[in-house]
Design a binder for these strands. Structure first.
Lengths: 213, 213
DNA sequence: TAGATTGTTAATCGATTAACAATC
DNA sequence: TAGATTGTTAATCGATTAACAATC
């Protein structure tokens, strides 16, 4: 039996997967753990250890076959499955993300947008259908939307999450300034990304530089 | 001598700081580690441990004084110092961030924008001065800009970073799909945030659910 | 063969959690 | 006083790093 995969490893495997797409475009046949490590910013041991969670995939002496490794990672992590997503909060940031179609390489598709401001909805020009936030539960359920990206003001984030969960959402990327966490009985994955908070963090690291490595 | 502060702790202290701003607005006088923990999604022990890196600030039995704790965190992490920042890459995402002035509560100020496309620059309506990317080094240096946010395509990220570092930048938030790392001799903090990669990560977590807690 | 590179084990490192004495 | 809550120590947990035998 293959053991549980640690979260940091899952994260790196996702990065490796993206990298392999790039190598495939360049028609590279094989790649070594050293080459991968240099690109994603970790040591070659880490890369080998991470990949070893998927089984024995490499060839001693010559490295990994690009297409084979990509297939293994994709299958194990379910990265080849198409996922439907929605954006909640159609301010500048939300609209920018909704229309960033190019970055959704392959398996993600934004199928709906939501905003509390009905007047704003009328002004949005896009192929993607947009709805008022009161329709979240019904729309998410009807379209079997699995993931959501939150770009609403921090104070309304918690309420929106409740509705998304009510509609059966499976994962949420929270770009609001609020820190959200799923309560015990709810099986939803929440990833908090606070871009502006990140400025503070960098600023703090800089202040503490020296004493802190 | 106070020991080195771990990175996860620094990150949480930043979150606590934001929270304290909120409590201050609500005119709360004191707050307990339990209350803080509930809001940032960690246990009360973690909160106490984190705060204890700053010294003995709380009062046994009644918790922490909001304003006192905020002052301590702010001073130690340098969060009260005003920082100048710039945005490189003025596509939809970059413009959205540049104009998100409201979220820059207090200590961050975006003083410049850059884009490689000179025609695009002409069309941008904003109070913030914008420049072609070839002016990065000179502009960053002249204005003593400390932080940069990168919203350029992945393939040009590395080249832009070189210029930013050439201008003396201290921290970079990288929102491109490329994973960047500072080489040994460069003292710059880089934070990689791949919003679209995060979708993959969530999708993988969901796929592995059950076997992986 | 000789050089390269994997997969795995063991050692190290660092962070989180638990528990509790101290005390307002 | 009794209840609440801190700061700290010790125990646990998990991830990273180092090293190397195996082998193409």
């Amino acid at each position: 039996m293959v053991s549980r995969i640690p979260k940091p490893t899952i994260n790196r495997l996702c990065k490796i997967y993206s990298l392999l797409e790039e190598f495939e475009d360049k028609a590279e046949i094989t790649v070594s753990s050293k080459a991968i490590g240099e690109r994603i910013g970790v040591g070659s041991h880490s890369v080998r250890k991470d990949i070893s969670y998927l089984g024995e995939i490499g060839t001693v002496g010559s490295g990994y076959e690009v297409s084979k490794l990509k297939t293994h990672i994709g299958q194990r992590l379910g990265l080849n499955v198409e996922r439907k997503a929605c954006v909640v909060g159609l301010g500048k940031l939300g609209r920018a993300i909704m229309q960033h179609e190019k970055l959704f390489s392959g398996n993600f598709k934004i199928v709906a947008g939501f905003d509390a401001n009905i007047n704003l909805l009328e002004t949005i020009v896009t192929d993607i259908p947009v709805y008022p936030t009161c329709d979240i539960i019904e729309t998410v359920r009807r379209n079997a939307i699995e993931f959501a990206i939150l770009t609403v003001p921090g104070h309304s984030a918690q309420e929106i999450v409740k509705r998304l969960i009510g509609g059966g959402i499976k994962g949420i990327i929270n770009l609001s300034s609020a820190t959200l966490s799923a309560s015990m009985n709810e099986s939803v994955f929440i990833s908090n990304i606070d871009i502006f908070g990140e400025f503070r963090f960098l600023s703090a690291l800089f202040t503490l530089e020296g004493e802190n490595k």
